[in-house]
Amino acid sequence: MSIQHFRVALIPFFAAFCLPVFAHPETLVKVKDAEDQLGARVGYIELDLNSGKILESFRPEERFPMMSTFKVLLCGAVLSRVDAGQEQLGRRIHYSQNDLVEYSPVTEKHLTDGMTVRELCSAAITMSDNTAANLLLTTIGGPKELTAFLHNMGDHVTRLDRWEPELNEAIPNDERDTTMPAAMATTLRKLLTGELLTLASRQQLIDWMEADKVAGPLLRSALPAGWFIADKSGAGERGSRGIIAALGPDGKPSRIVVIYTTGSQATMDERNRQIAEIGASLIKHW
């Protein structure tokens, strides 16, 4: 067993022997301040990774656009098919120029040779490549099948209805392509620590998230040296922004954090800054 596999296998073990965790309302004060600064709703939840206990939450059962955070769930569904012998990570998928959609920095470079399922998941999570996500959605049967996968996990809230990039439209009061912070946090925890996926697939999923290259201005910008984070960000229309993450000190994750916002007129930089400040408060009061 590799060191990384050992780390993920012992996530519940280490967490069980940690000192009790206590909620700190100071972080919620910052979440509410972010709402004021952005002029928009902000949803927040913080779960203990081992027990699933909610440590703090704000608007945990209000719907927010998922945006690209759905790509972690998508690759979880792909990995479940791999575990069941219905898919192979090494299978190569070929596609054409007509398949390319807006923001496809990886797939646009491989029109000639195609990409493997493993490479597509890596591109979808680490670079948020939209064509990679659409190609992977095709392998599982489309958005409705991802929703069905989530329902089978016990998540009857999260739903995907459309493809990239239309799913980022974020129309107010439109339930399409949305989740709730509580539902997303619980589902992410199941994917990373539950028995739904094999140990190898859980490790692969967290490795992809740990290698995320496009979430630097968010929670990662607030992390002290030595902290662990595996995350996936999302951005959408109407001032929408979000991030889902597993993080913790001492090089291992111990909490799940989900943050979503929508309806702001603020710039992307300002949305990023507010999420980073929430992260800084979380870490300060850990």
Rank of each mutant, 00 (worst) to 15 (best):
L74T: 06
L218D: 03
D129S: 01
R202H: 08
A132P: 00
L74M: 09
T27M: 06
L136W: 00
T116E: 11
W208G: 02
N152D: 15
P165I: 08
D113Q: 12
L49Q: 05
P253I: 10
L28I: 03
A183P: 07
L192N: 02
A235S: 08
R41D: 07
P253L: 10
H151W: 15
D129E: 01
M209S: 02
I93M: 03
P20E: 12
R238E: 08
H24W: 09
L10V: 12
D231G: 04
G90Q: 11
V8P: 10
W227F: 08
D129R: 00
Y103I: 04
Q265F: 13
V29S: 10
T198K: 13
T116W: 02
S240P: 02
R59A: 06
I171P: 08
G85S: 10
P224D: 06
N130W: 00
A245Q: 01
P143K: 03
R176M: 10
L150W: 06
T139P: 04
I3L: 13
R118A: 15
A246G: 06
E175Y: 13
V106H: 08
K213I: 11
A84P: 03
A16G: 15
I54F: 12
K190A: 13
I3W: 07
A148Q: 14
G251T: 10
F14E: 02
N173A: 14
T267N: 12
A34V: 13
D250M: 12
S240Y: 03
R59F: 03
R7W: 08
L199T: 11
K190Q: 12
G114I: 02
L160E: 02
F64V: 04
A211H: 14
L55G: 06
I3Q: 11
M115A: 06
R41L: 09
A123K: 02
P224M: 04
W208R: 01
R41P: 10
F17T: 12
I206Q: 12
V258D: 01
A245D: 00
T147C: 09
H24K: 15
Y103V: 05
T262G: 05
Y95V: 08
R7M: 05
E145Y: 10
T198H: 12
T126S: 13
A84F: 09
E145W: 09
A124H: 00
M184P: 00
E210D: 09
F17G: 09
V106I: 14
L197S: 05
M153C: 15
F22V: 06
Y95K: 01
R271W: 03
L197Q: 05
I244F: 03
Y44I: 08
E270I: 12
E145K: 14
V78I: 09
H151Q: 13
S201K: 07
A133P: 02
R159A: 06
I229E: 02
R91W: 04
V21S: 10
T198Y: 07
S80P: 01
S254K: 14
D231W: 03
M184F: 09
Q203E: 15
A200V: 11
K144G: 14
R162Q: 08
V78F: 04
S254C: 14
V157K: 15
G90L: 10
N152K: 13
L38N: 06
R241H: 04
P224R: 06
A84H: 12
G242I: 00
A230S: 06
H110W: 08
G43W: 00
G154S: 08
E119Q: 15
I283D: 01
R162E: 05
R176Q: 13
T138S: 14
F70P: 00
L218I: 05
M153S: 14
E26I: 14
F13M: 15
L218H: 03
L196S: 15
L55W: 07
T138R: 15
A246C: 12
G52I: 03
G226I: 03
V157P: 02
T178P: 00
H5L: 09
F58T: 08
V72L: 05
Q97K: 14
R91Q: 07
F6P: 06
L10F: 09
A132G: 05
E145A: 14
T139D: 11
L120D: 00
G76I: 05
S68A: 00
L247Y: 03
T261I: 12
T138M: 13
G236L: 01
G85K: 10
R41I: 09
L205A: 03
S80K: 14
F64S: 01
V106A: 10
D177M: 01
T198M: 10
N134S: 04
S104K: 02
K284V: 10
T198V: 07
S201G: 10
A266K: 13
S128K: 00
K32T: 09
A77E: 09
L146I: 08
P172T: 12
L135K: 05
E277F: 08
F228E: 04
A211C: 13
Y95D: 01
A183K: 08
L28A: 10
D269M: 11
L191P: 00
I93V: 14
S68Y: 00
R255A: 04
E56F: 04
A235L: 06
H156G: 15
L196E: 15
I93C: 06
I125V: 12
R63V: 08
Y260F: 15
S122Y: 14
L135P: 00
R189I: 07
S57L: 09
V21A: 15
G248C: 02
R238Y: 13
L137Q: 05
P12D: 07
D250Q: 15
T116K: 06
L73M: 11
S96P: 07
T186S: 13
V42E: 00
F58C: 08
R220Q: 04
F70S: 07
S264I: 04
K109P: 07
T126L: 08
I229V: 10
R220T: 03
D207H: 09
R202A: 10
R159P: 00
L120S: 03
